[in-house]
Structures are given as structure tokens and as C-alpha cells.
């Protein structure tokens, strides 16, 4: 029986090792393609192992790094701003909702909840944001859209509810205002959930490409992911021209390797950083109960 268990464990470990290799493999393919030689790719296709090892794609990208650095900077700035603002504002509404005796609480709950059920859709939102508020082609469109996510609000509220009422009660008796209680006690006690939500918000903003797709036309305001998306599109356009006209030469741009190098430059840092925060993401899922 014991030996059987051991064999089972070994089989499981082999199974998961293979599965994980399969999951990680596409990352490796990108990496390998980005370090390949453009000429070799055009004759033999992308290589699983770059031979010869060639960094000219990266040289090409970093010869003129302004665009990518700007996109990195911009994306970082709006992701951090949105994260801080969003967590603060969502806590501000979650706290009153966590107090069992507040009048009109259910109205506010429904007010938030309804936005999860029904929305105006793309065109009315677009008209509001760009024609009325004129947020298009500004950094604000990245920050202000989706600041309040009802789902996250309810998660924060659920956590707040778990904080013992005596803490609030004793502070009130000591004459503390609700603001003081919120800032000095509730927020510090809720670090785990706030960190989790902050990461969710940050990840969402960092990976945001469709806000730019709809609202941004100025190249200097492209978010990182949208820049990557544009590069894919633009090289596609180059290729189509080449096929149609037969005259245009794209051979001076190592198009295939540059594209893959860009994907690595964009994905790399996130790939290294986010797994460190994995436990928060997992916690966010298993905190689970959103009801109330």
C-alpha cells in the first residue's frame, strides 16, 4: 500500500511537471523567437532554441527606446494612481456599508449592485467621456474609468464586517469621529484585503489596452499594452502593402524578431514581479463570500 502511494505521488509529480511545462512553453517560444536571427526565421521559421543567438532585435528596439520608456512610465503612473485612488474610494463607500445600523444602506447597496447588472454600453459611455467630459486623449481616462468596482467594494465590505464591533464602539465612546475611526483603525486593520484589492486594480490597469483602443489617439499617450497591440497591427499593415505592391521593402526592420522582443520587453517585468504577489491574488479568490 505504501509503495503504491509513493508511485502515485511520483506519477502525479511527473504529470504536473509536464502540465506546467506546457503552460510555460508559450513564454519560452516568445523568448526564443525574440533572440533568433531574422534571416534564419524567414527561411526556417521561429526556432525553439535560438541558433545563432542574436540580440539584434533588442538592439533595434533600444536604439530608440523613448517610445517604450514613455509607455512604461505612463502605464506605471496611471496604474499606481488608479490603484491608490480606487482602493481609498472603494473603502470609503465600503465602510458605511459594513455598519449594520446605517439607514439607507440597502439603497446604496442596490445603487452599486445595479451597475453590475446593467450598463449604458459602449457608445453612451464613449459620448459622455469624450464629448461631454473631454477626457479622451488625456491620462485621466485611464485613471477615472472603473474607479469604483462594485465587486471589489463588496469584498472590502465583507472584510470590514469581520472587524469586531467593540473596537468601533470603544473608539466612539472615546469621542473619535467616524473619519478618525476609518483612517486610524479600520484601514490599518484591513491591510490584507486592501493589499489584495490594490493588486487586482493594479494588474487590471497594467494590462489595460482597450481603454486606449477606444479613447486614445495620441501616440504619446499609448498605454504599454496598447503600444504592443499597435506594433502588431502596424507590422501587419506593412506586410499587406508588401504583398499588394511588391515594391516596399521591410527587410531593414527585423519585423518578426522585433515584434517578439517587444512582447518580451512588455511581458518580462510583469512575469517576474506578479508571481511574488500570487498569494494575495489567491487570497482574493478564496476570501470568497461577497454576499451580505
Amino acid at each position: 500500500m505504501k509503495r503504491q502511494n509513493k508511485i502515485q505521488q511520483i506519477v502525479l509529480i511527473i504529470f504536473f511537471s509536464l502540465l506546467c511545462l506546457g503552460i510555460i512553453f508559450p513564454f519560452w517560444l516568445l523568448l526564443s523567437a525574440s533572440f533568433s536571427n531574422e534571416g534564419v526565421i524567414t527561411t526556417q521559421g521561429y526556432q525553439i532554441w535560438p541558433n545563432p543567438f542574436d540580440i539584434s532585435a533588442y538592439e533595434y528596439v533600444f536604439r530608440n527606446p523613448d517610445q517604450i520608456l514613455r509607455a512604461y512610465g505612463l502605464t506605471f503612473v496611471f496604474s499606481i494612481s488608479a490603484m491608490v485612488l480606487s482602493v481609498l474610494l472603494m473603502s470609503m463607500i465600503a465602510y458605511p456599508l459594513a455598519r449594520s445600523n446605517l439607514k439607507g444602506k440597502s439603497v446604496i447597496n442596490f445603487y452599486l449592485y445595479f451597475t453590475m447588472l446593467f450598463n449604458g454600453g459602449l457608445v453612451p459611455t464613449y459620448l459622455l467621456v469624450s464629448r461631454t467630459l473631454h477626457l479622451n486623449d488625456t491620462i485621466w481616462v485611464y485613471i477615472l474609468l472603473g474607479l469604483i468596482n462594485p465587486w471589489y467594494v463588496f469584498m472590502i465590505r465583507t472584510f470590514f464586517k469581520g472587524i469586531p464591533g467593540e473596537i468601533v464602539e470603544s473608539a466612539t465612546i472615546d469621542g473619535a469621529s467616524e473619519y478618525t475611526i476609518f483612517v486610524r483603525m479600520i484601514l490599518p486593520l484591513s491591510k490584507p484585503v486592501l493589499a489584495t484589492i490594490a493588486l487586482f486594480v493594479f494588474l487590471g490597469k497594467w494590462n489595460d489596452w482597450n481603454t486606449a483602443l477606444i479613447y486614445i489617439t495620441k501616440p504619446e499617450l499609448y498605454s504599454l499594452q496598447y503600444l504592443l497591440q499597435k506594433i502588431m497591427e502596424d507590422i501587419n499593415i506593412l506586410k499587406q502593402n508588401q504583398e499588394l505592391g511588391g515594391m516596399l521593402s521591410v527587410s531593414d526592420i527585423p519585423a518578426e524578431t522585433v515584434r517578439m522582443a517587444m512582447a518580451i520587453i512588455v511581458a518580462g517585468p510583469a512575469l517576474v514581479v506578479f508571481p511574488f504577489f500570487q498569494k494575495y491574488f489567491v487570497k482574493g479568490l478564496t476570501v470568497g463570500s461577497v454576499k451580505g
Binding site: 502540465l19 506546467c20 503552460i23 510555460i24 508559450p26 513564454f27 517560444l29 516568445l30 523567437a33 521561429y46 494588474l203 497594467w206 494590462n207 489595460d208 489596452w209 499594452q225 496598447y226 504592443l228 497591440q229 502588431m232 515584434r259 517578439m260 512582447a263 512588455v266 511581458a267 510583469a270 512575469l271 506578479f274 508571481p275 500570487q278 491574488f281 489567491v282
Partner: peptide, 21 residues
């Protein structure tokens, strides 16, 4: 688990590059 979750952190744009490759 860490490895299995990794793709979750990637944007669809990056995924589209992988699929393209």
C-alpha cells in the same frame, strides 16, 4: 500552482503574440 497561475497575469495582447508565434 504558481506556474499554473502565471498566464493569468498576462494581458490578452501578450497572449495574442504567443498565439501568433
Amino acid at each position: 500552482q504558481t506556474m499554473l497561475i502565471t498566464p493569468h497575469f498576462m494581458s490578452w495582447v501578450i497572449v495574442s503574440y504567443m498565439v501568433y508565434a
